[in-house]
Structure formats: structure tokens, C-alpha cells
Amino acid sequence: MNATENVTNEARGNPLAPKSQVLETGAAVGQSFAPVKQICAHLNAFHVYASDPKRCVEANHYCSHLNEDVRQCLIYDTPAPNARLIGVEYMISATLYKTLDPEERKLWHSHVFEVKSGMLIMPGPDGLPTGIWEEAETKEMEDVVGIYGKTYHFWQVDRGDKLPLGGPELMMSFTKEDQCPGFSELIGERDSRYGVSHVQKKEKRAYIEEPEVHNDADRVWKVENAMQKFAGATKDQASLLKGTHSST
């Protein structure tokens, strides 16, 4: 079989050989996988490309806590067993975020809109009544609403790539509904797959207080606004999108 021609599990390459299956099974029995076993939450939302804010992709986060102020998440394109690992996200508390230098802070995004709009969900286990699970989910959102995330994607599955091509892409989050073309349809399709309603979640989370978002966060949207008014913002945008620390 030619690996350059075959596509398996939406990635270019041959199906898993019997030898690999045996080794995989043996490793699963004999190794501990301790870091992965620390994953304690599955979160689903959408990320937007900092280099092209008109593009967004669904992201399934599998997160663990390093401590009370730092989380780390593996990001997959789906929650299926054969999901592709497309990126990583680090999440830190507002306290730690404020200690970062100004250029570093531009690479991070807030989660206020994700939480308050109902875009960010924590898919529940099968068989558990929705109301019971949403109580736990809403408590989680009380914590997530105030933290900041730094995300890079390595595999642009939304454009049909069969391998992780090119350099890492800095990703951001939406901060307003009108930033996402077809917001209702996009989220509605996701909701239908998970059997949830972001509208109901929005209502349930109405009591969650909105923290003040640091002015350096969510930079892509500020650059977008500046680009519409000032042609000279190009350098600022290029610095952000390449993830550099040059002054603006």
C-alpha cells in the first residue's frame, strides 16, 4: 500500500498494521500514561485564526490542572477515538496574566464571551439527566469566565489538510456574536450533535459576573478595528500574527 495515496481516519497514511496494533495493545496494558490520566474536563467551543479572523474551527479541549492558576489542554477536531490532535491551549488565571509583559499578553484571549453566550460547553456523559450535569457545568463556567488562554493549532483540518502542514497558527476566541458569520447556525449545528442549547445555557449563566478583560487581551479584534480606521496598523497586526515580541 502507498501511504502517499491512502487516507485513513482523515489523515494521509496506511491503516494500522497488525504489528502496530499488537504493540499499541501491549503499551496500553503496561504503561501508566500518567500525564494523560490527569485530564479532568472536556470543553467544546470554537477558535478563530488570528491570521484570518473570518476562519474558525470547532475545538474539543481535554484539560488538566497543573495547579489552581494553570491549566493545559490537548485540542482535538472531534471527541471520537480516532480524532486528530490539532493543537494545544494553556489557560492561566487573571493574576498570572497580569504578570506577563505587554507583548506576551497580546497572544492570549479571554473566555468571557464563550461562557456568557453559551458557546463554551462541557459535554455531559450519556444517561445523566441534563439538569444535573448543567449544574456542574455552570459551576465550572464560574471559574473559566475569568481565565485567559493561549492557543496554537498545528493542523488546519478546516481547509481539508490530511497532514499537519505549515507552521503553528495562533488562535483566538470570539468576543462578540457579530464577529462570527452565521453564529446561530454554526452553534446550532454543534448543539444538535450534543443535544444541548446554547441559548438555554446563556440564560442559566446570566448570573455569572463578567470580569473586566485586560486591554491587551483579544488583540486580533483590536487590530481588526484599527485596520478599518488606520492603514498604519499593518505592522502591529503582522507582529501579533507571527507571535513575535517586537514593539508596536
Rank of each mutant, 00 (worst) to 15 (best):
P125L: 08
V48W: 03
L170G: 08
S51C: 09
S117W: 02
A28Q: 07
P181D: 09
E210I: 07
S32N: 06
K162V: 12
A226T: 12
A80H: 12
G26C: 07
V57Q: 15
G87F: 00
S20V: 05
V145S: 07
P123R: 04
H214N: 14
V112W: 04
C73N: 01
F183A: 06
D191K: 08
G146D: 09
G30C: 08
D126S: 09
S117V: 13
C63V: 12
D158G: 10
E210N: 15
R193Y: 14
Q21R: 14
A45M: 11
Q200W: 13
E89I: 03
E114G: 08
R219T: 07
M172S: 14
G243Y: 06
A231K: 14
A94Q: 14
V220Y: 01
A94C: 07
C73R: 07
C56V: 01
H109I: 04
P53I: 10
E137Y: 03
S184F: 12
Q179P: 10
G26Y: 07
W133Y: 02
P15K: 04
E212L: 11
S20W: 03
H111G: 07
C40S: 14
N67C: 05
T138L: 13
L128V: 14
Y148I: 00
C40G: 11
E203G: 13
G167N: 11
V57F: 08
Q228D: 14
G124N: 01
E142P: 00
G124K: 05
N2E: 12
M171W: 06
P18V: 01
S184M: 11
A94M: 04
Y90N: 13
V157K: 04
G127T: 04
A206P: 03
K116N: 06
W221E: 05
A28V: 09
H109Y: 10
H245P: 05
T175D: 02
L240W: 06
E24W: 06
T130A: 11
A27S: 11
Y90P: 00
P125V: 02
M172D: 13
T130V: 10
Y148F: 15
V115Y: 00
C56I: 04
G149T: 05
D69M: 03
T151P: 02
K106T: 13
P211N: 00
I187E: 08
V29A: 12
E114T: 00
R205K: 12
P79L: 00
L16A: 10
D77Q: 08
T8E: 01
L128A: 01
Q237S: 14
H245N: 15
G195H: 04
I92W: 01
K19F: 13
E134C: 02
E203M: 15
K150A: 03
E185R: 07
L128E: 00
I132A: 14
